[in-house]
Amino acid sequence: MSRLSIQLPGLDLKNPIMPASGCFGFGKEFSNLYDLSKLGAIMIKATTVETRLGNPTPRVAETAAGMLNAIGLQNPGLEMVMKNELPYLERFDVPIIANVAGTTTEDYVEVAEKISEAPNVKALELNISCPNVKHGGITFGTDAVVAKELVEAVKKVSKVPVYVKLSPNVTDIVGIAKAVEAGGADGITMINTLVGMRLDERTGKPVIANGTGGLSGPAVKPVAIRMVYEVYKNVNIPIIGMGGVTNAQDVIDFMSAGASAVAVGTANFVDPFVCPNIIEALPARLEELGVQRIKEIIGRSHL
């Protein structure tokens, strides 16, 4: 057992660090830069039944210590992901968490059933929190009853554990977390982006073609930490935390609040080597804190 290893439902992680969905494509671009086997896991870009071409451009806008995006779940569709993207990742010794998205319950069930059969997909991440698509996505993530029913339907067909990605765009995130736990979720991933808007200084109109976008980056970290902290107190399933992580201390913070593993999102766009850099920096940070194994700090804020 290494100092950084973490065991979660379906996931045997050599370290708790994984790129967040939508910030790493399907890994190919980053595989030209470093060995993806270094990562704890990879959360691949959201996959839908059909090909999605996404939203019009501009799709991103920089904000104070963060960015807005409205990509719109662009992906090649289930069949191509199964045929091209997942087999490519098999050459690396790294578990894949497949992000599943759709507009109807049937969509989620279809993607979940098929993608969970891929040999390297060790867990699913149900995307009920994408703020950038008109139908589905976040509508499943803001209503506790609907969210629970979706999890139940997906659990019936999935061959691997199911994690649910929560939206921060709700009044009561604990209520949603409890609902998906009751629906049989094996874990929670949180948080997705916060809905925001930036205006053009001259015209006063939204910069992003979609109008609104999802805010991510260091600016959202305090919100994410608070939400992980609250959810940890109220559910018994593990949490993979994310939101503005850029360095080893951010990882320590999320795990202290209650996360069992941590995803890195926007930072991959700023520094494509950020994940291996954090993994390399963690042992020294643990040494400074006098911590033997990283799992000892999970939830220490609550002690």
């Binding site: 980053f30 451009t57 799709r59 766009f269």
Partner: peptide
């Protein structure tokens, strides 16, 4: 030219 995020093809911001 297009507004870019990552610059390496991962973020899907600069699609044409």
């Amino acid at each position: 030219e297009e507004r870019m995020g990552c610059g390496i093809g991962a973020c899907f911001a600069c699609i044409c």
